[in-house]
């Protein structure tokens, strides 16, 4: 059954709330407003204010409260409006959620799920548009997911909630209106990367909001006779490198598409691991298509120029293949 990414997120949360009385949703405007991306519309009426909990504008406080609630036996879904605002809660996520199990010698796990929107593309300028997934993917002790499809938006929440450790889910804001099909049973894993398109000439590795752009680029390349393989990382920590290695051993060429800035990016991590493990399999220096090193600008033409676009991906592949 076709649905939007937004509806998939909503259904996944609805299913979790119905299935487990320990699950509750907490965040800014998740209740009366229905969620800043309308992912929890109608929940307040259905589940009541205890389980659909509107919070004050206190990211540090309510994310930390989510950690405490998880320790206390609940299964919180904490919604942070955007990754940009999550920086106000960075201390609790990095210094507490990620460390508690280890610091306590394994006595306390933190079964917390934090969802947040990420990414650019809507002319929201430099405080609402950044892609900082990589900051979180740097941290041992947390898992980082980036559902790029309707199936993953629908399927990733249940295993994230079942996970005894903190999981952060990044929903790219440009994907909420995307249409697609969830898996038949609604389920998926949160461990592996996914092959979206097979091809023998080059491996295109991407995640999140860049997946549709990368698939569009692969379509254009096919029209030019270049067969690109497209891999969606899905899980940003821990990375499923086996799937990427497998692909690169076949294509011998890799381009990573990442909406984060190039410096210190996830793309850099993927390429470093390719260099460590697959150096002699590579027939060309690997390449990256990332965001320009600038705070995301407001003006539409400048924002578009700052972000990875299908044309830039196509150009990077052509350059690599000498075409």
């Amino acid at each position: 059954m076709k649905m939007t990414y937004r509806e998939a997120v909503r259904q996944a949360m609805h299913e979790a709330l119905v299935a487990d009385p320990r699950v509750f949703l907490m965040g800014e405007d998740v209740g009366k407003y229905g969620g800043s991306y309308a992912c929890s519309l109608g929940f307040l009426e259905e589940f009541g204010p205890e389980r659909i909990r509107d919070t004050p504008l206190s990211e540090l406080g309510f994310v930390g409260a989510g950690i405490g609630a998880a320790l206390g036996g609940l299964r919180p879904i904490v919604e942070v409006m955007t990754v940009n605002f999550s920086l106000l809660a960075l201390d609790q996520i990095v210094n507490t959620a990620a460390t508690l199990r280890h610091m306590s010698g394994g006595q306390f796990s933190v079964p917390l799920v934090v969802r947040m929107a990420t990414g650019a593309g809507r002319q929201l300028a430099a405080q609402h548009s950044h892609s900082l997934e990589n900051w979180y993917a740097h941290i041992p002790g947390i898992k980082v997911l980036a559902p790029a499809t309707v199936a993953d938006a629908r399927g990733m929440l249940a295993p994230a909630l079942a996970d005894p450790d903190p999981v952060i889910i990044f929903e790219h804001a440009q994907l909420y209106n995307l249409e697609g099909e969830p898996a038949e049973d609604g389920h998926c894993d949160i461990a592996t990367a996914a092959l979206h398109r097979e091809g023998a000439d080059v491996s295109l590795v991407t995640y999140g909001g860049s997946l549709p752009k990368t698939l569009a680029a692969a379509g254009q390349l096919a029209a030019e006779g270049i067969a690109a393989e497209v891999i969606d990382l899905r899980v940003l920590r821990p990375l499923d490198m086996a799937t990427i290695f497998h692909s690169v051993r076949k294509t011998h060429k890799a381009v990573v598409v990442d909406e984060g800035w190039k410096s210190g990016s996830l793309a850099a991590e993927v390429l470093a691991r390719l260099a460590e493990e697959c150096f002699y399999e590579l027939d060309a220096p690997p390449a990256r298509v990332c965001s320009a090193e600038v705070p995301i600008p407001y003006a539409r033409h400048l924002e578009e120029a700052a972000l990875p676009q299908p044309a830039r991906i196509v150009a990077a592949v052509r350059r690599m293949l000498g075409k």
Partner: peptide, 10 residues
């Protein structure tokens, strides 16, 4: 402090 709030909430 936020942790204590969450434990109390639970």
């Amino acid at each position: 402090l936020p942790l204590a709030v969450g434990l109390a909430l639970a």
